[in-house]
Amino acid sequence: MIQFQYTRATQPKAAVDAVTKEKNSMFIAGGTNLVDLMKRGITVPQRLVDINRLPLKDIKKEGSSLRIGALALNSQVAENKMVLQSHPLLAQALNAGASAQIRNMATVGGNMLQRTRCPYFYDTTMPCNKRQPGTGCGALEGYNRMHAIFGFSDRCIAVHPSDMSVALMALDASVLVTGPSGDRRIPFADFHRLPGDRPDIDTTLRPGELITAVDVPDSPFTKNVHYLKVRDRASYAFALVSVAAALDIKKNRIEGARLAMGGVAHKPWRLAEAEKFLVGKPVSEATFTEAANIAMQGAKAFKHNAFKLRLAPNSIVQALKTAAKLV
């Protein structure tokens, strides 16, 4: 880790200014991914602007949304009464991520910005277009068990590791940012990018922009929800496949549905077609199986992750069954 400058900001504007002023400056909040990346020499900021003292920690009702401050800790959000009441899916997803200690450090904003866990990204002697554009994708012809089955490009087949983001995707959240040219709101679906020919860029944030909050709109998805995370051990592991499932069920009929997957693409993967199919259908395993088949259209596997073509639809069915309390 190189020596770097360190400053603390107390107001968002000052933080944005500080990061904009000097090249190679970055915000640091929880640090749970950034410090890791800096130790490995993957991210080498010349200056860190500590934003932990910015007043962005509140979780509060804002019109017909719940506004979650970007610096709210993952554990605070997961245990927040309003979150548990109105967005239990989000709480479940948060608790499925990392460990209790990391959830006590990681912020909502930082969680969204965590980099992929692709091993080729982390090994600086191996090719990786995300880490070092132009060096190639190590995973494409390599060990790609953890990798994408949707939305990848020939430059990058990495997946996004966040659980929280999968729930936020399903819940139609939006991201509030402030930056050198003012404030803006980014729909969650537009926040993370697909790799395309620039896998080094994970999000649509512009230089110097700071996430200030996430808005999660009110929804009927307060009861029949489930976040299923399938991983290589019972806890504290990244998802092979995860499913955020939310159903609005009235008299055994699906009035509304939300479905998103993690561990399958460069961004949280919304299953819009399957959602559409589910609306108006009766609650049954057969319905869910068909929805899963629709969801999997266009999926393509690589040498080591073909199992995801079976695991993903089965997990969708399982998550929907659990959400619908069929199990």
């Binding site: 360190y6 640091i28 929880g30 640090g31 749970t32 410090v35 500590d50 990391i102 006590n104 450090m105």
Partner: peptide, 15 residues
């Protein structure tokens, strides 16, 4: 009072 991982946090962040 909160449990955290001391390896993933910079000391100066805890002034």
């Amino acid at each position: 009072g909160k449990r955290v991982l001391s390896c993933l946090t910079l000391a100066v962040m805890h002034d």
